[in-house]
Computed example of a mutant assay.
Amino acid sequence: MAIHFFVENISFKLTNALKVRRWIKEIILQENYQLGELNFIFCNDEYLHKINVEYLAHDDYTDIITFDNSDEKNLIEGDIFISVERVKENAQNLQVSFEQELQRVIIHGVLHLLGYQDKAPQEQAQMRAKEDEALKLFQTI
């Protein structure tokens, strides 16, 4: 169906939006899912912190929050909120480009909607491997 990009409380424009859409669609297809409605909302730390407190009862800052809106099996639908400020800070701390870190965070949210978790160490390792695989695919699209 559709992938949408929105901005809340910041000035931000996603570069290569068409490429990012193709990439996300390809990952979804590779996992044998169908795309429904997928919304990415790019925001600042305070906006995402408020969502984290209000909806998840977590009083901390994070780079991403994913809400799964899927009603059907193998259909991916959801809202993915991303703090651009947190991604920039993480990129600096990890000594990677902002674009690379943003791509990792974007696909991290998609992978959550595809059923991947990251609480336990084994889940974290699997998530990181899937992110790395997806980042390699981004270079070829």
Rank of each mutant, 00 (worst) to 15 (best):
E37V: 14
D59E: 06
F67E: 03
I76E: 06
V84G: 06
V84M: 13
G78S: 12
Q100P: 04
E72I: 04
L48E: 04
I106K: 04
S83H: 08
G115V: 00
S70E: 11
A57C: 02
L38E: 05
E131Q: 15
F81R: 03
N93L: 09
H112P: 15
F98Y: 11
I107R: 03
T66M: 09
P121S: 03
K73Q: 01
E131T: 06
A125E: 14
L48Y: 05
E77T: 05
N93T: 02
D68T: 03
A125G: 04
D118L: 15
L111A: 05
V96P: 03
N69S: 13
L111P: 11
N52S: 01
A57S: 07
I64C: 10
Q124H: 05
V84I: 12
G78C: 09
L113H: 01
Y55S: 10
F81V: 11
Y47F: 02
N74M: 08
E72W: 03
V105L: 10
C43E: 08
L113T: 02
K73T: 00
E99A: 13
D63P: 02
L114N: 03
V53C: 06
A120F: 14
N52E: 04
Q126G: 01
T66R: 03
Y61I: 14
K50I: 08
E123F: 07
N74R: 10
L111D: 04
V87Q: 08
Y55D: 11
R86Y: 06
E89T: 14
F42Y: 03
G115I: 06
C43F: 03
E54A: 15
D71L: 13
D68P: 01
N69M: 13
L113F: 05
N69I: 00
I64D: 06
V105R: 08
E89G: 07
Q124Y: 14
H49R: 15
L38T: 02
E99C: 01
N69L: 14
D59W: 06
I64G: 07
E131W: 10
A91Q: 11
K88Y: 10
V87I: 12
I64V: 11
K130C: 11
Q124R: 15
G109C: 10
A129C: 07
K130Y: 00
E89F: 00
N90L: 02
I41M: 01
L114R: 05
P121T: 06
D60V: 09
Q100I: 08
E131N: 12
G115W: 03
A125Q: 15
K73E: 12
D59H: 09
F98S: 09
D59Y: 00
H49W: 13
F67R: 10
G109D: 02
F67Y: 09
Y61A: 14
D71F: 05
V53F: 04
N90D: 12
K50E: 14
V87C: 04
N93C: 07
G78P: 02
L94V: 09
A125R: 15
L75D: 02
N39R: 00
R86F: 13
I65E: 04
F81A: 07
A125L: 14
R86P: 06
I64N: 08
V110N: 00
D118C: 14
I41D: 08
D71M: 08
T62A: 01
Q124E: 15
K88H: 09
G78H: 10
I107K: 10
E101P: 06
D60C: 06
